[in-house]
Design a protein around this nucleic acid. Structure first.
Lengths: 334, 334
DNA sequence: CCGTCACGGGAAAGCGCTCCCTCGTGCGGT
DNA sequence: ACCGCACGAGGGAGCGCTTTCCCGTGACGG
């Protein structure tokens, strides 16, 4: 008796269900999509058949037929950075309530890759969340021109009609400056983040405003990693600053470690501030004065904003979320 | 003159390209897929048309026609945990070289959600990477039965035919024990991680083996977060242990902070070890003795393993990746 | 010079779903 | 008793690709 090879068990389709439930494909589809015009008994039969067969609708077929995939693309520069993984986490949870899934791509900060990935995401997704602080404006414009719902996080590009949700970096750093000025500091060093990134530009902008507080700022090239902060130790000690504003908490913690090694007391000899408030900030010794950014809020706001964009509401204003200065023990009087 | 409303600019399809390039749809498809049997001149014309029209093939249509989506599903318990975000990052980069994209879902450690998400991923993906340390065995079995390439990370389930890549947690903790024993410690406290998780079980298993080193272990319930470690301070001080083995680096750092507050010297009064080596471990004071796990290696191994599974190689053995003890200043003689 | 092939290229059949349109039925109104 | 209507249910045309099958052409050998 010849028996078909159990090669690759054919996928169970909606037609199989229809047959099993003795209903039409249309009806099964209705049941699947919760359209109420189906006789309860029939619907129940269909549900049973679905259960029995272990049927799951093919996402590809649904996507093709519906004209949308139920997928949102997210592009981040570095998923290993808690700032972004947190964002993705909350964003993903938020849009999930909308019935959407998230396709994440990590550009590794490489602009060329970024372009390519964004282009790829467009093919898959119904909407895009872009965290691309350094993507060339032209690429951004090209993406906008594609016409699909697009939202950028933490970036503003005047003149480009794109929606965004941002952290109020400017206000945050201003608060830091105010705090330091109040403590009597006059000369401060700023450990700069990645050159050209929006976040760094915003900080610099705030810093230039800080002269109003009587602060004299020395900008030192640094980076965004703990290692960068650690490496910046000597440079910092080479200045006559009495306080250091680190690009973020990682940098601050790295520097803190180097300072401890060098026997420099914080805040006795030097005050130090971070930014972004990572969990560990309050567990360092001394606990770090930093700026708490509403990470979850950002993810949620992004999710909601994109939802509205995808629903066709195009008249939406960009949101800027407030931050909060967290004064702890790493800052003291000059 | 009646003009069609520029409603929602119809998608550009392969047919448009064919028309523009004066070729057949088949040919355009061939060019797209790099099938060599096309006259170079024609191919060039097609490429030009594609460029001109800004055509991008619809992922849904391709997926439906090809019978596979080019997407791999990844389920993690917590994307905010660097352990998993790192894994996803590397994994995603690895499979990208295979032409696959990654759909990430975060179960938030909720078993019910986990089931649902896994079920959902199946509809979208050609393969699955599961990080589900506590998913009920039955759910796992159900997933295996679905027949699609499935790989689990950091978990082994004897009797279930599933492939896995793991970190050698057992060996890692054994190394920690050996190190402490060598320093003369006899009584140690273990700050336990999430109950029921594979990683915690493995540690406990190693710990029971540690009696061979003459170690007497007190297990204290704790958790996996910095806060948990901080909170465990009093409990730790309530024991007569001379060394503490923390579930992971976060816990260790949290405890370290609490100990510093309490004026307990590390390693003078108490030795302390972490696990997983996060970046900050070497920047704490004192720098943390911990176990370095090959996070990137894990992601890469997972990517490669899943690639092979998806290519049909079913005869694959599970891999266990070696770890490395990093001795730093948080451990000293008893 | 014609038969044979190899090969470039086109037509068309799906892939598994959604959704519009149509059809049949049973009901109420006049 | 008849017409119309509402509503439940089925038929079938796509959605945008891939891929098989087949045809036409030109090169080559006998």
């Amino acid at each position: 008796m010849a028996m078909a090879k159990p090669s690759r068990a054919r996928r169970i389709t909606i037609a199989d269900v229809a047959r099993a439930a003795d209903a039409s494909v249309s009806t099964v589809s209705r049941v699947l999509n919760g359209i109420g015009t189906v006789d309860p008994a029939l619907a129940e039969r269909v549900r049973l058949a679905i259960e029995e067969l272990g049927y799951r609708p093919s996402a590809a077929a649904q996507g093709l037929a519906r004209g949308r995939s139920g997928t949102i693309g997210v592009l981040v520069p570095d998923l290993a950075n808690p700032h972004f993984s947190d964002l993705v986490k909350v964003f993903s949870a938020t849009v999930r309530d909308l019935g959407a899934r998230v396709l994440v791509m990590d550009s590794d900060e490489d602009p060329a890759v970024e372009r390519e990935l964004a282009e790829d995401l467009v093919r898959y997704a119904d909407g895009l969340l872009l965290c691309a602080p350094r993507m060339p404006r032209a690429d951004l414009a090209a993406l906008v021109a594609r016409g699909l719902p697009l939202l950028v996080a933490n970036r503003q590009e005047p003149g480009l009609a794109l929606h965004s949700v941002c952290i109020d970096v400017h206000a945050g750093l201003l608060a830091v400056c105010g705090h330091l000025a109040q403590l009597g500091h006059r000369k401060v060093a700023y450990l700069a983040g990645p050159e050209g990134s929006w976040a760094n530009r915003e900080r610099l902008r705030a810093l230039s405003g800080a002269q109003a507080f009587g602060l004299e700022v020395t900008v030192l090239a640094c980076g965004s990693l703990t290692d960068d902060g650690y490496a910046a130790g000597p440079a910092v000690l080479g200045t006559d600053a009495t306080a250091v504003i680190a690009y973020n908490d990682f940098v601050a913690l790295g520097l803190l470690s180097r300072l401890a090694e060098a026997g420099v007391s914080v805040p006795g000899d030097l005050s130090l501030t971070g930014f972004d408030e990572i969990d560990l900030a309050r567990y360092s010794s001394p606990p770090l004065t930093t700026v708490a950014v509403p990470r979850s809020e950002l993810g949620r706001a992004a999710g909601e904003a994109l939802a509205r964009l995808m629903a066709g509401e195009d008249d939406m204003e960009s949101r800027t979320l407030p931050v909060e200065l967290r004064v702890r023990e790493s800052t003291g009087t000059a």
